[in-house]
Each structure stands twice: as structure tokens, then as C-alpha cells.
Design a protein around this nucleic acid. Structure first.
Length: 388
DNA sequence: AAGCACCGCAACCGCCTCATT
DNA sequence: AAATGAGGCGGTTGCGGTGCT
């Protein structure tokens, strides 16, 4: 029932804002902190605060701890930015939504000043309509990514849809073959890629969770692999980007080498047939040494992939920089967890978020080198090319 | 000015997972 | 191992503001 000094500081720092916001809104009041029974220093509203570990309960205001926490995280927490989404943020949301589906918390983790609720609202009230308008387009024909990215399939006959799908697969196959030809990737991997790229292209508002035509992805296991597929997409595409971006490579290589080994999410296929030796957890796979060898045998992919993931994990490292003495073993599981499962919010109090590799990858549109990246950009943006 | 429709967004709800007892 | 509670998350609701007629 004790309040840490950090909690106090957070609440204190936001007190004025809290008060301004809360006053007159459903009778919630802020209070003078530290005293079980106190008055708000501004409005003198009598408020009883009981602080519990990681939560606060405002008695007498008919607020449960859950409500209070929610309000804090979504509204009162210092550093939160509301409204006025920038173009950059808008693009981030659109791209990430296409990749991750409606995993707002995950998306929000890449937009440190935004809450998942805010992003969700923005998507539902604005972006979805905007994209929907776009896709129904000038010619009045749906262009295929519903609900924003439109599973507008209902307006498309099955035959049309299948033809389109086949075209997409062909295109993806060709592009991937070109992109991956130096690597001599295995056939199964390639097939998996095609699948995912098609999924990317057709992902709907509910994202990969509800592929427009489940039967078209007959090789896919049930929905449990959905997120795996998404993170895998990011991993794979990041890998490509890393391979074609020397600057990114250099950046990745500046990180401690101990963390570069034996981490990958590259092998949880939607088909689930890529690496039997891999163990997965919520779509996150810890690749075995054998798998790593396989990767490293394929050109320098293993190294690059590790670097890519190290960089990805670096997204979280700023958040837990004081945990940098993790053992190698704990690095693997912890980092995976923090990246794809925990998806915890970066500490917005702690200062500037470094421009993440993922962001760079998402927006490095000016770069023309590398077919992979071009492919990626094309795949994601082609149908929204005129959108921005 | 009044009525209405629409929109944005904070809050709520229910489900799930995880930690603790 | 089972029960319980807290937190996280995504979907939905409803209130208040705004613009139009």
C-alpha cells in the first residue's frame, strides 16, 4: 500500500494537467499525494487515495483500481501526446497495422508518446475511413485491402479474388526469387515467404487474424500462428533491409556481440514446416544452434539476421538499459518476450526515443538500393501510393 | 435558437494471461 | 495443483462537442 517516490513524482509532475483535465469530468478529482485523506491543492475536493502496488484506488469516487490505472495510462501519464497525429505517425500506424493487425499495444510500442487507445481510436475514427475511401477509389472499384486495407472481397467474386491472389503470388514469388536468389534459400522458406507477402498485401483491419479467404491459405495452421506470421514478416523484411543497408549493419554491429547469437524469429512459418527443431512461444521462435548454422551457411544471412534482431531488441534496450548485464541465456528469452510479447511501453519520461531501426526500415522510402526493400515498399505502399 | 446528425475519444466491458497464495 | 486477483488488451459504448439545416 506504499507509494514509491517515483510514483509520487509522476503524479506530482502531472498534477496540474490532471487537475485541468479532471475538473468537471465525471467527478474525478486529483489530490494531494501521500496523505490517505486529503484535499486537492487546487480545487480542495476531498479525495481519499489508497495506493497499492502498481495501482491506485480512489475510494469514494466509485473508481476501481483498474479504471484508475486505465485512466492513468491512457490519459494522465506524463509525456502522452494527444491528437494531431503527424504524417510520420500516420504512416507508422498504417504500416504497422498492415503488418501486425489490430495489435494496438504492439503498434503503440513503436509510437512512444501515443497510447494504444489513442491509436485505436485514430484508426477507427479516421484512418479506417480514409483508407476505405481511398480503396473504393476514384473508379469506384475496390482495390483490395479491406477495412482500411480492405477485405473488400465481398464485392469481388470468388473467381476474381482467386485470380488476383494468384497474380499476387506470382508477383511475390518472382520478386522474392530475385531478392533471395543469392542466398539460395530453401524452397520451403520461399513458399512461406510468398504466403506472408500475400498476406501482407491482403491484410485486413483485423489484420492477419482474419485473412480474407482462409481457404486460400490452406497450409496455414489455425489462428495461433497469426502473430508469428506478423513478427516473422518484420523479421524477414528487416533482414532484407539490413542486408541492403550498410549503415544499418554498422549500427547493428556496434552492439555487444554476445547478444547476437542464437536469436531469431525467422522460422515460425505460417506453414509451420520450416524448422522442426525450433521451439516457439506465441509465435516467437528461439532458433537452435543447428538452425543458426543453416542460416549462416546461406551467405551471411545468419549474421545479418542476428544483427537485425539485435537491433530490434535494441528497441527495448533503451527502456531497460540498466538491465544490460543480462546473461546470454536470459537475453534470449527476455528479449524475445520484451519485443513481441511484453510490448511494454518505452519510458516516455526517460527522454528521447532513439529512432528505431524498424521506423527507419518503414520509412526509408528514399533509398532505392536493394530489390528486397523496393519489394517491401511496393508491397506495402502500392495500393496506397496516392494516399499520402 | 432549436433540433438533428455526425464525430471524436475517454471510459467501460469482457476475455485472457500471469503471478501469487 | 487449484483458486484468486491484478494487469493487459481489443472491441465497443456513450457522452459531449460541433456543424448543418
Amino acid at each position: 500500500m506504499k507509494m514509491t517516490s517515483e510514483d509520487k513524482n509522476c503524479l506530482m509532475n502531472s498534477h496540474i494537467e490532471c487537475h485541468a483535465v479532471l475538473r468537471g469530468r465525471r467527478g474525478i478529482a486529483t489530490a494531494d499525494f501521500g496523505m490517505p485523506l486529503s484535499k486537492c491543492v487546487c480545487c480542495q475536493l476531498l479525495t481519499l487515495l489508497v495506493f497499492a502496488p502498481r495501482s491506485l484506488l480512489i475510494i469514494g469516487l466509485l473508481r476501481c483500481s483498474k479504471s484508475c490505472r486505465l485512466r492513468w495510462t491512457n490519459y494522465l501519464r506524463p509525456g502522452i501526446k494527444r491528437g494531431n497525429f503527424t504524417d510520420h505517425e500516420e504512416k507508422m500506424i498504417i504500416h504497422l497495422q498492415a503488418l501486425l493487425g489490430n495489435r494496438w499495444a504492439a503498434i503503440a510500442s513503436y509510437l512512444p508518446q501515443r497510447t494504444d487507445n489513442d491509436i485505436k481510436n485514430y484508426w477507427n475514427t479516421y484512418l479506417k475511413k480514409k483508407l476505405s475511401k481511398l480503396e473504393t477509389g476514384l473508379d469506384g472499384q475496390p482495390c483490395g485491402r479491406g477495412d482500411g486495407f480492405a477485405s473488400s472481397q465481398p464485392t469481388m467474386s470468388r473467381g476474381q479474388w482467386e485470380r488476383r491472389l494468384q497474380t499476387d503470388i506470382r508477383m511475390a514469388k518472382q520478386a522474392l526469387s530475385e531478392a533471395l536468389s543469392p542466398d539460395q534459400k530453401s524452397h520451403s522458406f520461399l513458399a512461406d515467404d510468398q504466403d506472408d507477402l500475400v498476406m501482407l498485401k491482403h491484410s485486413s483491419s483485423s489484420g492477419p487474424v482474419s485473412s480474407p479467404k482462409p481457404e486460400a491459405r490452406a497450409s496455414s495452421p489455425p489462428s495461433s500462428t497469426t502473430y508469428a506470421s506478423s513478427t516473422e514478416n518484420i523479421a524477414r523484411l528487416l533482414k532484407s533491409w539490413m542486408r541492403n543497408n550498410p549503415a544499418a549493419k554498422r549500427s547493428a554491429k556496434t552492439r555487444p556481440a554476445s547478444a547476437t547469437q542464437s536469436t531469431s524469429v525467422d522460422n515460425v512459418g505460417t506453414t509451420g514446416n520450416v524448422n522442426d527443431s525450433a521451439s516457439s512461444h506465441e509465435g516467437i521462435t528461439t532458433i537452435t544452434e543447428n538452425d543458426n548454422n543453416n542460416d549462416s551457411n546461406n551467405d551471411n544471412n545468419g549474421t545479418d539476421l542476428s544483427e537485425a534482431f539485435e537491433s530490434l531488441f535494441g528497441l527495448e534496450s533503451f527502456e531497460s538499459s540498466n538491465n544490460s548485464d543480462f546473461s546470454h541465456q536470459s537475453n534470449v528469452s527476455d528479449r524475445e518476450a520484451s519485443l513481441f510479447q511484453d510490448e511494454s511501453k518505452p519510458d516516455v519520461l526517460g527522454g528521447q526515443l532513439p529512432f528505431s531501426l524498424l521506423e527507419k526500415w518503414l520509412f526509408d522510402e528514399s533509398s532505392t538500393q536493394g530489390k528486397d526493400q523496393q519489394l517491401l515498399t511496393d508491397m506495402i505502399l502500392d495500393e496506397n501510393a496516392n494516399f499520402f
